[in-house]
Design a protein around this nucleic acid. Structure first.
Lengths: 129, 129
DNA sequence: CCGCATCCTGTTTGATACTG
DNA sequence: CAGTATCAAACAGGATGCGG
């Protein structure tokens, strides 16, 4: 914390709430996939992003991008052309988040088999019990 | 995200879907808080966990723990006593996930101010435009 | 003490149609 | 192309009461 304000117990509480809230927004399904896609492909236009995220609706894509823009994770650039073109890109903050999520992503990748196994075991136990 | 992670992503769509699904489950609000709480406090019983997570309902706590148990993130131990006692603890897999999430947690903690600022800027821009 | 079953409500999401 | 508007459907979540 770089804040010059007095660091009190209550400040810590407030910060934890902010952290929780932030993670809650950022840990969203589509947000994660958008981050991944932009990190991988660089600046991408709206329709291309939609194609890159199978199953997302236009509405959810718009909503997700707006929220991410508000959080400062992506930038939105409108090109005054015909037909219109809008490109989305990760900001520095967004890029740093992508890197932070790397650990979770790798964990998931590395442990897919263990998780599948755990589910299978659990479900089998349920069927019997 | 590392290039190897991205490469794997391209290599196997099935695994990617599993990874997405897994992250979707794990990125859940209560799941994160439960992981944090168990990582910090060690094995904890149901009611104590409820007290440690202000705002969670009994239903959501049960639901979250069941799902985590199914994914192999927590273990559930019933002590045949009167009154009944049930303790939850992180498995190795759960512990590793907690460590992986450290990066995201630290990112959020470190950037609370930047995000707040980004939101304020965005909202101000909206008011004008 | 633990936690499942039920009911009920508010939010989230998808489909569709329309605008600049 | 890049959205917005609207409506219905689906789902998450809370409250309550019961059972092991």
């Amino acid at each position: 914390m770089t804040s010059s304000a007095v660091a009190s117990y209550h400040d810590d509480q407030k910060i934890n709430e902010l952290v929780d809230e932030t993670i809650g927004r950022v840990a969203d399904r589509w947000t994660l996939l958008v981050i991944e896609s932009l990190e991988e492909a660089g600046p991408t236009r709206f329709s291309a992003l939609g194609r890159a995220l199978p199953g997302i609706s236009q509405k959810m894509l718009t909503q997700t991008l707006r929220q991410m823009e508000r959080e400062g994770l992506v930038s939105r650039t409108v090109f005054p052309e015909v037909p219109p073109r809008v490109e989305y890109a990760l900001t520095d903050l967004g890029h740093e988040l992508a890197e932070a999520f790397c650990g979770v992503w790798q964990w998931a990748e590395k442990n897919v088999a263990r998780i599948e196994q755990a589910r299978a075991d659990y479900d089998r136990r349920q069927e019997r019990g």
